[in-house]
Protein backbone atom coordinates (compact mmCIF):
# COMPACT_ATOMS: atom_id res chain seq x y z
CA UNK A 1 0.00 0.00 0.00
CA UNK A 2 2.92 2.38 -0.46
CA UNK A 3 1.36 4.20 -3.40
CA UNK A 4 -1.69 5.52 -1.65
CA UNK A 5 0.07 7.91 0.64
CA UNK A 6 -1.30 11.18 1.91
CA UNK A 7 -0.22 12.90 -1.28
CA UNK A 8 -2.39 10.57 -3.31
CA UNK A 9 -5.39 11.32 -1.16
CA UNK A 10 -4.89 15.08 -1.52
CA UNK A 11 -4.56 14.81 -5.28
CA UNK A 12 -7.70 12.74 -5.49
CA UNK A 13 -9.65 15.23 -3.37
CA UNK A 14 -8.43 18.07 -5.57
CA UNK A 15 -9.50 16.19 -8.67
CA UNK A 16 -12.97 15.52 -7.30
CA UNK A 17 -13.28 19.21 -6.45
CA UNK A 18 -12.18 20.10 -9.98
CA UNK A 19 -14.82 17.79 -11.45
CA UNK A 20 -17.50 19.21 -9.18
CA UNK A 21 -16.37 22.66 -10.27
CA UNK A 22 -16.97 21.67 -13.88
CA UNK A 23 -20.63 21.14 -12.98
CA UNK A 24 -21.03 24.10 -10.64
CA UNK A 25 -19.24 26.82 -12.64
CA UNK A 26 -21.45 26.65 -15.76
CA UNK A 27 -24.55 26.53 -13.58
CA UNK A 28 -23.25 29.53 -11.63
CA UNK A 29 -22.65 31.38 -14.90
CA UNK A 30 -26.20 30.61 -15.95
CA UNK A 31 -27.48 32.09 -12.69
CA UNK A 32 -25.35 35.20 -13.25
CA UNK A 33 -26.80 35.42 -16.77
CA UNK A 34 -30.34 35.30 -15.48
CA UNK A 35 -29.57 37.80 -12.73
CA UNK A 36 -27.95 40.14 -15.24
CA UNK A 37 -30.89 39.94 -17.61
CA UNK A 38 -33.33 40.47 -14.79
CA UNK A 39 -31.50 43.51 -13.45
CA UNK A 40 -31.54 45.06 -16.93
CA UNK A 41 -35.15 44.10 -17.48
CA UNK A 42 -36.75 45.62 -14.39
CA UNK A 43 -36.52 49.10 -15.85
CA UNK A 44 -38.79 48.14 -18.73
CA UNK A 45 -40.98 45.36 -17.39
CA UNK A 46 -44.53 46.23 -16.59
CA UNK A 47 -48.01 46.08 -17.94
CA UNK A 48 -47.20 48.77 -20.51
CA UNK A 49 -44.33 46.72 -21.87
CA UNK A 50 -46.62 43.77 -22.45
CA UNK A 51 -49.36 45.81 -24.10
CA UNK A 52 -47.37 48.27 -26.22
CA UNK A 53 -46.41 48.06 -29.85
CA UNK A 54 -42.76 48.54 -30.83
CA UNK A 55 -41.60 52.13 -31.03
CA UNK A 56 -38.58 54.15 -32.06
CA UNK A 57 -38.42 55.39 -28.49
CA UNK A 58 -36.98 52.60 -26.40
CA UNK A 59 -38.84 53.54 -23.25
CA UNK A 60 -42.20 53.26 -25.01
CA UNK A 61 -41.53 50.13 -27.03
CA UNK A 62 -43.30 46.93 -25.97
CA UNK A 63 -43.70 43.31 -26.95
CA UNK A 64 -47.46 43.14 -27.53
CA UNK A 65 -47.49 41.97 -31.18
CA UNK A 66 -44.45 39.74 -30.60
CA UNK A 67 -46.03 38.12 -27.57
CA UNK A 68 -49.33 37.58 -29.36
CA UNK A 69 -47.40 36.28 -32.37
CA UNK A 70 -45.58 33.77 -30.18
CA UNK A 71 -48.86 32.58 -28.66
CA UNK A 72 -50.46 32.17 -32.09
CA UNK A 73 -47.36 30.40 -33.40
CA UNK A 74 -47.27 27.96 -30.52
CA UNK A 75 -50.96 27.08 -30.83
CA UNK A 76 -50.81 26.56 -34.59
CA UNK A 77 -47.54 24.66 -34.31
CA UNK A 78 -49.07 22.41 -31.67
CA UNK A 79 -52.16 21.87 -33.81
CA UNK A 80 -50.01 20.79 -36.74
CA UNK A 81 -47.30 18.80 -35.04
CA UNK A 82 -49.22 16.89 -32.37
CA UNK A 83 -51.54 14.84 -34.59
CA UNK A 84 -48.72 14.14 -37.04
CA UNK A 85 -46.15 13.31 -34.40
CA UNK A 86 -48.45 11.14 -32.30
CA UNK A 87 -49.70 9.43 -35.46
CA UNK A 88 -46.16 8.63 -36.53
CA UNK A 89 -45.33 7.34 -33.05
CA UNK A 90 -48.41 5.11 -33.04
CA UNK A 91 -47.47 3.73 -36.42
CA UNK A 92 -43.92 2.97 -35.33
CA UNK A 93 -44.84 1.46 -31.96
CA UNK A 94 -48.12 -0.30 -32.68
CA UNK A 95 -48.11 -1.25 -36.35
CA UNK A 96 -44.63 -1.59 -37.79
CA UNK A 97 -42.48 -2.47 -34.86
CA UNK A 98 -39.67 -4.30 -36.55
CA UNK A 99 -40.14 -3.74 -40.25
CA UNK A 100 -37.57 -2.34 -42.61
CA UNK A 101 -39.71 0.74 -43.13
CA UNK A 102 -39.79 1.37 -39.39
CA UNK A 103 -35.99 1.16 -39.29
CA UNK A 104 -35.71 3.62 -42.13
CA UNK A 105 -38.11 6.07 -40.48
CA UNK A 106 -36.32 5.68 -37.18
CA UNK A 107 -32.90 6.38 -38.69
CA UNK A 108 -34.36 9.33 -40.53
CA UNK A 109 -35.88 10.82 -37.39
CA UNK A 110 -32.55 10.50 -35.58
CA UNK A 111 -30.88 12.37 -38.43
CA UNK A 112 -33.55 15.07 -38.58
CA UNK A 113 -33.01 15.76 -34.89
CA UNK A 114 -29.44 16.77 -35.73
CA UNK A 115 -30.25 19.13 -38.61
CA UNK A 116 -29.49 22.76 -37.62
CA UNK A 117 -32.64 24.78 -37.09
CA UNK A 118 -31.60 27.42 -39.59
CA UNK A 119 -31.82 24.75 -42.32
CA UNK A 120 -35.43 24.11 -41.35
CA UNK A 121 -35.82 27.81 -42.02
CA UNK A 122 -34.50 27.30 -45.55
CA UNK A 123 -36.90 24.37 -45.98
CA UNK A 124 -39.79 26.56 -44.85
CA UNK A 125 -38.68 29.39 -47.13
CA UNK A 126 -38.32 27.17 -50.19
CA UNK A 127 -41.29 24.89 -49.56
CA UNK A 128 -43.96 26.78 -47.65
CA UNK A 129 -43.24 30.41 -48.50
CA UNK A 130 -42.36 29.91 -52.18
CA UNK A 131 -43.60 26.61 -53.60
CA UNK A 132 -46.77 26.31 -51.49
CA UNK A 133 -47.34 30.03 -51.91
CA UNK A 134 -48.05 30.74 -48.27
CA UNK A 135 -45.88 33.85 -48.35
CA UNK A 136 -44.11 35.15 -45.26
CA UNK A 137 -47.10 34.27 -43.16
CA UNK A 138 -47.98 33.02 -39.70
CA UNK A 139 -48.94 29.67 -41.21
CA UNK A 140 -45.58 29.29 -43.00
CA UNK A 141 -43.76 30.06 -39.74
CA UNK A 142 -45.85 27.63 -37.73
CA UNK A 143 -45.52 24.87 -40.35
CA UNK A 144 -41.74 25.30 -40.29
CA UNK A 145 -41.63 25.09 -36.50
CA UNK A 146 -43.95 22.07 -36.64
CA UNK A 147 -41.48 20.16 -38.81
CA UNK A 148 -38.63 21.31 -36.57
CA UNK A 149 -40.12 19.87 -33.37
CA UNK A 150 -41.75 16.85 -35.03
CA UNK A 151 -38.85 14.51 -34.16
CA UNK A 152 -39.11 15.55 -30.50
CA UNK A 153 -42.85 14.90 -30.42
CA UNK A 154 -42.41 11.53 -32.10
CA UNK A 155 -39.66 10.42 -29.73
CA UNK A 156 -41.56 11.55 -26.61
CA UNK A 157 -44.78 9.89 -27.79
CA UNK A 158 -43.03 6.61 -28.55
CA UNK A 159 -41.51 6.69 -25.10
CA UNK A 160 -44.98 7.16 -23.60
CA UNK A 161 -46.54 4.40 -25.72
CA UNK A 162 -43.81 2.02 -24.63
CA UNK A 163 -44.79 2.46 -20.98
CA UNK A 164 -48.21 0.87 -21.59
CA UNK A 165 -47.85 -2.78 -20.55
CA UNK A 166 -48.26 -5.44 -23.21
CA UNK A 167 -50.70 -7.30 -20.93
CA UNK A 168 -53.30 -4.55 -21.41
CA UNK A 169 -53.05 -4.73 -25.17
CA UNK A 170 -53.46 -8.52 -24.92
CA UNK A 171 -56.44 -8.12 -22.64
CA UNK A 172 -58.06 -5.93 -25.22
CA UNK A 173 -57.27 -8.21 -28.16
CA UNK A 174 -58.62 -11.17 -26.21
CA UNK A 175 -61.96 -9.37 -25.95
CA UNK A 176 -62.12 -9.24 -29.72
CA UNK A 177 -61.03 -5.65 -30.17
CA UNK A 178 -59.30 -4.68 -33.37
CA UNK A 179 -55.93 -3.01 -33.39
CA UNK A 180 -57.29 0.52 -33.69
CA UNK A 181 -59.96 -0.11 -31.04
CA UNK A 182 -57.19 -1.29 -28.73
CA UNK A 183 -55.02 1.73 -29.45
CA UNK A 184 -57.84 4.25 -29.21
CA UNK A 185 -59.46 3.01 -26.02
CA UNK A 186 -56.77 1.20 -24.07
CA UNK A 187 -53.32 2.35 -25.17
CA UNK A 188 -53.81 6.06 -25.84
CA UNK A 189 -55.66 6.90 -22.61
CA UNK A 190 -52.78 5.41 -20.65
CA UNK A 191 -50.04 7.00 -22.71
CA UNK A 192 -51.79 10.36 -22.82
CA UNK A 193 -50.05 12.09 -19.88
CA UNK A 194 -46.63 11.14 -21.21
CA UNK A 195 -47.49 12.28 -24.71
CA UNK A 196 -48.87 15.55 -23.37
CA UNK A 197 -45.81 16.27 -21.26
CA UNK A 198 -43.39 15.54 -24.08
CA UNK A 199 -45.41 17.59 -26.51
CA UNK A 200 -45.58 20.64 -24.27
CA UNK A 201 -41.81 20.51 -23.86
CA UNK A 202 -41.47 20.31 -27.65
CA UNK A 203 -43.69 23.38 -28.06
CA UNK A 204 -41.62 25.16 -25.45
CA UNK A 205 -38.59 24.46 -27.60
CA UNK A 206 -40.39 25.91 -30.62
CA UNK A 207 -41.24 29.06 -28.67
CA UNK A 208 -37.55 29.75 -28.11
CA UNK A 209 -36.51 29.27 -31.74
CA UNK A 210 -35.33 32.33 -33.63
CA UNK A 211 -33.28 31.48 -36.71
CA UNK A 212 -35.89 29.49 -38.70
CA UNK A 213 -38.46 32.26 -38.23
CA UNK A 214 -36.01 34.90 -39.46
CA UNK A 215 -35.30 32.85 -42.57
CA UNK A 216 -38.99 32.19 -43.21
CA UNK A 217 -39.45 35.94 -43.00
CA UNK A 218 -40.88 37.03 -39.70
CA UNK A 219 -41.04 40.81 -39.56
CA UNK A 220 -39.04 42.78 -37.03
CA UNK A 221 -41.12 45.89 -36.79
CA UNK A 222 -44.82 45.15 -36.54
CA UNK A 223 -47.46 47.63 -35.51
CA UNK A 224 -50.46 45.36 -35.88
CA UNK A 225 -51.64 41.96 -34.72
CA UNK A 226 -51.88 39.07 -37.18
CA UNK A 227 -55.56 38.64 -38.10
CA UNK A 228 -55.39 35.43 -40.13
CA UNK A 229 -53.18 32.46 -40.91
CA UNK A 230 -51.92 34.29 -43.99
CA UNK A 231 -50.96 37.46 -42.12
CA UNK A 232 -47.39 38.63 -41.58
CA UNK A 233 -46.18 38.13 -38.06
CA UNK A 234 -43.42 38.56 -35.55
CA UNK A 235 -42.47 36.62 -32.44
CA UNK A 236 -40.73 37.27 -29.14
CA UNK A 237 -37.27 35.97 -30.12
CA UNK A 238 -37.38 38.02 -33.33
CA UNK A 239 -38.29 41.15 -31.41
CA UNK A 240 -35.47 40.49 -28.94
CA UNK A 241 -33.01 39.98 -31.79
CA UNK A 242 -34.13 43.25 -33.32
CA UNK A 243 -33.60 45.16 -30.09
CA UNK A 244 -30.29 43.58 -29.22
CA UNK A 245 -28.90 44.37 -32.68
CA UNK A 246 -29.67 48.07 -32.41
CA UNK A 247 -26.76 50.43 -31.85
CA UNK A 248 -28.63 52.49 -29.22
CA UNK A 249 -27.80 51.15 -25.76
CA UNK A 250 -31.23 51.83 -24.28
CA UNK A 251 -32.80 49.15 -26.48
CA UNK A 252 -30.65 46.58 -24.67
CA UNK A 253 -32.98 47.07 -21.72
CA UNK A 254 -35.95 46.25 -23.94
CA UNK A 255 -34.15 43.14 -25.14
CA UNK A 256 -33.59 42.08 -21.53
CA UNK A 257 -37.23 42.65 -20.69
CA UNK A 258 -38.24 40.71 -23.80
CA UNK A 259 -36.00 37.85 -22.67
CA UNK A 260 -37.71 37.80 -19.30
CA UNK A 261 -41.11 37.55 -21.02
CA UNK A 262 -39.78 34.79 -23.31
CA UNK A 263 -38.24 32.79 -20.47
CA UNK A 264 -41.38 33.34 -18.41
CA UNK A 265 -43.50 31.89 -21.21
CA UNK A 266 -41.22 28.86 -21.55
CA UNK A 267 -41.11 28.41 -17.80
CA UNK A 268 -44.91 28.48 -17.67
CA UNK A 269 -45.09 25.80 -20.36
CA UNK A 270 -42.56 23.63 -18.52
CA UNK A 271 -44.38 24.10 -15.25
CA UNK A 272 -47.63 23.10 -16.94
CA UNK A 273 -45.95 19.96 -18.27
CA UNK A 274 -44.63 19.01 -14.84
CA UNK A 275 -47.98 19.78 -13.21
CA UNK A 276 -49.88 17.63 -15.71
CA UNK A 277 -47.44 14.78 -15.33
CA UNK A 278 -47.71 14.76 -11.56
CA UNK A 279 -51.47 15.05 -11.65
CA UNK A 280 -51.92 12.15 -14.03
CA UNK A 281 -49.27 10.05 -12.36
CA UNK A 282 -51.29 10.20 -9.16
CA UNK A 283 -54.37 9.11 -11.06
CA UNK A 284 -52.74 6.10 -12.64
CA UNK A 285 -53.63 3.35 -10.29
Amino acid sequence: MKHTGRRGVVIERLFVALCLGAVIVPLGLLLILFADVLSDAVQRLGWAFLTSFPSRKAALAGVYPAFVGTLYLSFITAGLTLPLGVGAAIYLEEYERRGRLANLIELNIANLAGVPSVIYGLLGLGLFVRIAGMGRSLLAGAATLALLVLPIVIMASREALRTVPLSLREGSYALGATRWQTIRQVVLPMAFPGILTGSILAISRAVGETAPLIVVGALTYVTFLPDSLGAPFTALPIQIFNWVSRPQAEFVLNAAAGIVVLLGTMLALNAAAIFLRNRYQKRTY
Binding site: G208, A211, P237, I259
Partner: peptide
Amino acid sequence: GVPTIVYGYFALVF
Protein backbone atom coordinates in the same frame (compact mmCIF):
# COMPACT_ATOMS: atom_id res chain seq x y z
CA GLY B 1 -32.54 24.30 -23.10
CA VAL B 2 -31.99 28.06 -22.80
CA PRO B 3 -32.96 29.75 -26.07
CA THR B 4 -29.87 30.72 -28.04
CA ILE B 5 -31.10 34.28 -28.41
CA VAL B 6 -30.63 34.62 -24.65
CA TYR B 7 -27.06 33.34 -24.89
CA GLY B 8 -26.43 35.79 -27.72
CA TYR B 9 -27.57 38.63 -25.52
CA PHE B 10 -25.32 37.39 -22.73
CA ALA B 11 -22.28 37.14 -25.01
CA LEU B 12 -22.73 40.60 -26.48
CA VAL B 13 -23.92 42.56 -23.46
CA PHE B 14 -22.16 40.83 -20.57
